[in-house]
Simulated assay, not measured.
Amino acid sequence: MNRYVGPDALREVLQAFSSETVVLEIQTILPVRAIGKTVKASHKYQQITSSIKEIGIVEPPVVCRDKQRPETYLLLDGHLRIEVLKELGRTQVECILSHDDEAFTYNKRISRLSPIQEQRMIAKAIERNVPKEKVARALNINTRSLLRKATLVDGICEEVVALLKDKICPLATFDVLRKMIPIRQIEATELLINANNYSVGYVSAILAGTPQTQLVDTAAPKKMKGMTAEALSRMESELARLQQAMTSIQDTYGQDHLHLTVARGYLAKLVGNPRIAKYLEKHRPEFLSEFKNIVEMTSTIGAD
């Protein structure tokens, strides 16, 4: 039953950040970790450098005041951005001022940009007449790579785009999917998601197991290095059986999961009864051992 809580019992929610950004001298900002040579040589660091050179800081660094030295600030998030600004000779930066120093929380729930999300961002920039060369420089890629990213979903059906919109998968995976007709693209994508494997090798194996009639170019024979026509035919049959088995499991999964949960609760009561536990230990010790294993399961899903 819900209990009434009066207004006086509600505590004030404190704001974690200042409502406005502040412009600080970079020399007053103290990093809490060092940036090594390996990081500076990484592609990510080069991308950040190119982006700042081309369009400036997109996401302001997060800082908090040093309690021991109020005239200085601790850098909580944005070490690479600050390092790039130093290399570029900048002296000031716009920052978000935090009221605490919990640096570990900022990147804990970070979301990486998926290829489809990146494609939409690039396509929208091009639609707004931003020069392709400028976008390419900001992303630290050449124009040819930019155009490939911009046309990533060409030939991919809408259902697959929706399924993969937040998935991190190689660009070449889309090249393989593009060789299949839409219905087969959806089936292949579901296999990728169920296996949580978006590698080019896996999707190429699915392509090899795809019937010729489900390819965009039905006249071109399928070829895989080191595989004969007979092996490809067997792979088609095995993949078809695998899909059928997975569909069968999906159809009964909910009901099976419910039955197992109910059974687990019932067995917990049995094992928890001292008289029944003593009887099983004396007459059916193998049953008691299995019952305890089921009861101690923290999840009805198998361990990795």
Score class of each variant (00 low, 15 high):
296 E>W: 00
110 I>P: 01
124 K>S: 13
266 Y>S: 06
176 V>I: 15
282 K>Y: 03
134 K>L: 04
78 G>W: 03
1 M>L: 04
273 N>E: 09
21 T>I: 00
36 G>H: 11
50 S>K: 10
204 S>E: 14
216 V>W: 03
221 P>Q: 04
220 A>D: 05
236 E>F: 02
172 A>H: 08
270 L>E: 09
298 T>Q: 13
134 K>E: 07
118 E>H: 13
297 M>R: 15
79 H>S: 05
205 A>G: 08
44 K>L: 08
256 D>Q: 10
172 A>W: 00
183 I>G: 03
57 I>C: 11
69 R>T: 15
92 Q>N: 13
238 E>Q: 12
99 H>C: 06
194 N>H: 09
162 A>W: 01
85 L>D: 04
246 M>P: 00
61 P>R: 10
271 V>T: 14
151 T>L: 01
163 L>M: 12
202 Y>L: 15
2 N>W: 00
227 M>A: 07
145 S>G: 12
282 K>V: 02
55 I>A: 07
209 G>F: 03
114 S>H: 03
86 K>Y: 01
92 Q>A: 04
277 A>F: 00
100 D>H: 12
96 I>H: 02
192 L>Q: 13
299 S>M: 05
244 Q>N: 05
238 E>R: 11
274 P>D: 08
178 R>T: 12
155 G>F: 06
109 R>V: 11
58 V>Q: 12
26 I>Y: 03
243 Q>W: 01
33 R>G: 01
302 G>C: 06
97 L>V: 15
117 Q>T: 11
280 L>K: 05
153 V>C: 15
65 R>K: 12
85 L>H: 06
270 L>N: 08
96 I>V: 15
84 V>Y: 00
261 T>R: 13
22 V>E: 12
9 A>T: 07
126 I>E: 04
53 K>R: 14
222 K>F: 02
44 K>F: 04
127 E>L: 12
16 A>N: 03
21 T>L: 00
220 A>P: 04
23 V>E: 10
30 L>S: 11
262 V>D: 08
61 P>D: 05
221 P>G: 09
98 S>C: 15
229 A>G: 03
282 K>S: 11
68 Q>N: 14
126 I>G: 10
232 L>S: 07
262 V>R: 11
229 A>T: 14
237 S>D: 13
270 L>S: 09
95 C>S: 04
222 K>W: 00
118 E>G: 14
272 G>V: 07
140 N>D: 06
301 I>R: 13
26 I>A: 03
212 Q>G: 05
12 E>M: 09
76 L>H: 10
187 E>V: 13
39 V>E: 10
38 T>L: 07
44 K>R: 09
202 Y>W: 09
240 A>Q: 09
207 L>W: 13
237 S>Y: 03
1 M>V: 08
56 G>A: 05
122 I>G: 12
192 L>R: 10
114 S>F: 02
267 L>Y: 06
193 I>C: 01
171 L>F: 09
27 Q>T: 11
251 D>C: 00
134 K>I: 05
33 R>I: 03
251 D>T: 14
133 E>H: 11
227 M>P: 05
232 L>V: 10
79 H>Y: 00
12 E>F: 05
253 Y>K: 15
85 L>V: 06
211 P>F: 01
8 D>R: 08
198 Y>H: 12
126 I>V: 14
164 L>A: 02
149 K>S: 12
232 L>E: 07
94 E>V: 13
143 T>V: 14
237 S>C: 06
193 I>L: 10
